[in-house]
Structure formats: C-alpha cells, structure tokens
C-alpha cells in the first residue's frame, strides 16, 4: 500500500529548543492515525510543519511522490492537505454558509472570479450545503460563525476543512473542550468520514483515540516513542510509563 505522507528526519528548532527531533513517519492512504503524547511532545508543531505553517529546520516532507518540504502552506492545501485547529480558527464575522463556501470556492477554482455575484455559483452552494449537512449544521447556515455554540464551532471547523476536499486531513484535538455528549457526536462524525480520506488526529481523549484510530503514533520530546496498532501500543511498557496514572484501558 502506498504512503500518502512521509516525513524523513524532520527537525524543527526554536532557537536552542528542539521541538521536533529527527522525526520520521509514514502514513498510508486511508489510514486513521492518531498522534498521542504528553503536552509539549510537539504534536501541534508537527501539524504546523506538515501543513506548512512552519518551515522545517531540516529533513523532508513528502506528499505521495511530491517533495513538499519547501512549499508554502497554501500550495500544500491545494495539493490536498487539509487541517483543523486546536482552537477554533474560523471566519468569525462571516456566516456559517460563507465559511464553508470559501473553502468550496477555492477547491472549485472559482475564488478569483471578479464579476458574477458569488451566490450565483450553484456548484459552490451545493458543495457547501452537502458539507454542512454532513456535520449537522445545515439549519445554522445563515448564522454568524462567531455566534455559534462552542461545540457547533468545532463541527464547523471540520466542515470548513472538508469543503476544501482534502486527501489528507489533520485534525487537531477535534473534541477538545467539549461536553461528553458533544464528544460522542464528534467521534461519530469523524468515524463516518469517507474511508479514502486519510486522517491524522491529535487527540487527548484516549477513549476517542481507541474508537477512531487504526494506527497510533506516540510522540515524546519531539520524536516517535512507539508506533503500531492500538492494541500493540497499549501494551507498550514505555507508553504506559509516559501515561502513568492515565488509564490506557478503554473506559467502558
């Protein structure tokens, strides 16, 4: 099976601080890979490196057979990397519908048209409605994004990323700050995503991790501590040591 994402000896320093340390990683097409690890392990930094928000200090990043190490964030998105953010990072002053449209319009290559009113592009509206229906926000399409309830904003965060039709989607703590009921809805939503969409998920909720992931990578101090199928990772002594006090058993 081919890899969709390959990191080769990626290092990122901030001044003297090494946050990502000679990290190599392969993710296969269609995988649901969870990234776990204690705070400060460099998970979000890794997302920033993959999505191009931060440049690497050294090493290479490949998306299928393309070396994207030097590509800016926007180009990586065009090549099919989508992401969500740990803290809601929406177009807070625009409508829910417009939030999704911005992504759909770019994906359909219409975002620099200058004459016809934006709302006349039916394909964009259809795509946007489809994605909103998928995350259960269709009835809120007209609301201002910044005025949605927190959990709905988390869902919109994913909808915006999905509307750009990525091949690889990076989800940064999709359930963070959610009530248990909302968390369950969110997990269902993610689980229902099409199987050909590769997911890389940072998640602290260990229950969510085991429900969603078919592969787990454990990060510690910027490098890979353990990797494998959920059960194997659960048995790993080192991982248990890191998560000492945190039950790695499923909570049910």
């Amino acid at each position: 099976m081919s890899d969709i994402l390959r990191l080769e000896h990626v290092t990122r320093r901030f001044g003297g601080l090494v946050v990502t340390d000679d990290l190599s990683l392969r993710v296969a097409v269609g995988e649901r890979r969870a990234l776990i690890g204690p705070n400060g392990a460099g998970k979000t930094t890794l997302f920033n490196l993959i999505s191009g928000v931060l440049p690497v200090s050294s090493g290479q990043i490949w998306l299928q057979d393309q070396n994207i190490t030097a590509r800016p964030a926007a180009e990586r998105a065009i090549l099919g990397i989508g992401r969500t953010f740990q803290r809601n990072n929406l177009f807070a002053g625009l409508s829910v519908f417009e939030n999704v449209c911005l992504a759909a319009r770019r994906q359909q290559g219409l975002s620099s048209r200058v004459f016809r009113p934006a709302h006349r592009y039916a394909a964009v509206a259809e795509a946007a409605q489809g994605v909103l229906a998928q995350v259960g926000l269709l009835d809120r399409a007209g609301s201002i994004a910044g005025q949605l309830a927190y959990g709905q904003q988390r869902a919109l965060e994913i909808a915006v990323a999905l509307a750009a039709r990525p091949r690889l989607l990076l989800l940064d703590e999709p359930t963070s700050g959610m009530a248990p009921a909302e968390t369950n809805q969110m997990i269902d939503l993610i689980a229902r995503l099409p199987p050909d969409l590769t997911l890389l998920i940072i998640e602290h909720d260990i229950d969510a991790v085991f429900r969603l992931a078919n592969q787990i990578t454990v990060l510690s101090f910027g490098s890979v501590l353990a990797e494998g199928a959920p059960d194997a990772v659960r048995q790993n002594a080192q991982v248990q040591e890191i998560y000492l006090g945190l039950p790695l058993e499923r909570a049910d």
Binding site: A74, F91, A161
Partner: peptide, 28 residues
C-alpha cells in the same frame, strides 16, 4: 460587482482570517 463577486468574498475571508485562508489553499 467586485465586492459581491467570489474575488470580493476572498478578500473578506483574508480580512477575517488570513491564516485560515492559507490553510484552505489561498495564496493570500
């Protein structure tokens, strides 16, 4: 016409959140 067009909406998106626009593939 310009501000109502997709291009105009793109500009508004940039004003709201340029970082997110880049993450969506806009060369802002």
């Amino acid at each position: 016409r310009l501000v109502a067009s997709p291009f105009g909406h793109t500009l508004r998106g940039i004003k709201e959140n340029a970082q997110r626009m880049q993450a969506l593939g806009y060369r802002t």
